[in-house]
């Protein structure tokens, strides 16, 4: 913990926001990814996250560099391109008490790593899976990614003729219980969703539209700041209430819906878009598809179903981290070996 300056407020654990920062970003000034980093720091601070329990994973890309820029008190692992999900899977099994944050890019997750994305979601690995989605490969200097919209063009003038892969509908299809789309330029919405994500147990998929100011911020791009701002269609005003605060918060009756998590935390959803129920899987799919056809970005909590057991529960693992189990529990006795040998005689 750093010594707080007299004016810096602290959270319930006594940490200031400064305690959740990381090293200095080396991304381009104005990169959407940095805005996301700022919200992660904010949400972790406000959610009273114990930094030492945080494990950060990423693949390769500008986006994948960002785990170095937040929560220095946690451990980080910048792995290989497209393989972040398997890293998070392994570590989350080794120590089920870790709070896992995976940061990936649209290239990292929707091209080279699609298989790992799909299977991590399918397994409900306990992690917040963030896709910092700019429609291009930033780090390799601006090639199309698989989330680029049909008809979108590169700075060079090349036009994308292929249909995009949408991480959100894909995640819903795979049974993910927490799927949201956000815009890096809407900190309020992103912050609320991140706080809810910290309280969730299982895979959270966040597709965060995050403009690349260097390679994909021109007029003919569908992921420029201007385009997304103009076409962003927030579904609802979101509030998140941590379990510890539930008692004290007065929730306006009527138009606000509450979704309760197993730990007692609540997401308060005040609809803007009429009739959108984020607990209706088919309805969510339909609404997303319709909005994509209209060229809109539906943002907010697209689907929520906080009832599914995370992977360690599915595997019936002991509560203690496997990593800290003792030899006395792990190594069978000489009598066991003798029995096994007898059976082989």
């Amino acid at each position: 913990m750093t010594t707080p300056t007299p004016s810096a407020p602290a959270n319930k654990l006594g940490f200031t926001k400064q305690d959740y920062v990381g090293s200095k970003s080396t991304l381009c000034a104005g990169c959407g990814h940095d805005a996301i980093t700022a919200q992660i720091i904010n949400a972790a601070y406000e959610s009273n996250i114990e930094g030492y329990r945080v494990a950060k994973f990423s693949g390769i890309g500008c986006s994948s560099k960002t785990p170095a820029y937040f929560i220095n008190q946690g451990w980080g692992f910048n792995s290989v391109h497209g393989r972040m999900p398997s890293m998070a899977t392994g570590a989350s099994l080794a120590n089920r008490q870790l709070i896992n944050i995976g940061v990936s890019g649209d290239g990292d997750s929707m091209s080279i790593g699609t298989g790992q994305f799909v299977h991590a979601v399918r397994r409900n690995v306990a992690m917040i899976y963030i896709i910092e989605d700019n429609g291009v490969y930033g780090l390799t200097k601006g090639q199309f990614s698989a989330t680029a919209d049909k008809g979108s063009s590169l700075k060079s003038g090349a036009v994308n003729e292929l249909p995009p892969i949408d991480p959100c509908t894909l995640a819903i299809e795979l049974g993910c219980g927490f799927v949201a789309r956000c815009f890096s330029g809407n900190p309020k919405q992103l912050g609320a969703i991140l706080k809810a994500a910290f309280a969730y147990q299982g895979t959270v998929v966040l597709d965060i539209i995050s403009p690349c100011v260097t390679f994909n911020n021109h007029d003919a791009s569908t992921r420029s700041y201007k385009h997304v701002k103009d076409h962003d269609f927030p579904l609802h005003d979101l509030g998140f209430i941590q379990y510890s605060e539930v008692e004290d918060v007065d929730i306006a009756a009527g138009e606000t819906e509450l979704v309760t998590f197993p730990d007692g935390s609540k997401v308060a959803i005040k609809a803007i878009h009429e009739d959108y129920d984020p607990r209706d899987r088919y309805g969510a799919m339909k609404a997303i598809h319709e909005s994509m056809e209209k060229g809109e970005f539906l943002t907010g909590l697209l689907y929520i179903n906080p009832t599914q057991p995370p992977l360690p529960d599915l595997l019936n693992l002991v509560d203690e981290p496997l990593a800290s189990l003792d030899e006395t529990l792990l190594k069978p006795s000489p009598a066991v070996l003798e029995d096994i040998m007898k059976a082989l005689m």
């Binding site: 494990a55 994973f57 692992f77 792995s79 393989r83 999900p85 398997s86 890293m87 998070a88 899977t89 392994g90 570590a91 099994l93 080794a94 120590n95 870790l98 298989g115 790992q116 299977h119 981290p321 496997l322 990593a323 800290s324």
Partner: peptide, 15 residues
């Protein structure tokens, strides 16, 4: 690939 990722990350985390 995923198997290798699991093995190394688990080892990294102390398993």
């Amino acid at each position: 690939l995923a198997s290798a990722g699991v093995v190394l990350a688990a080892g990294w985390a102390g398993a």
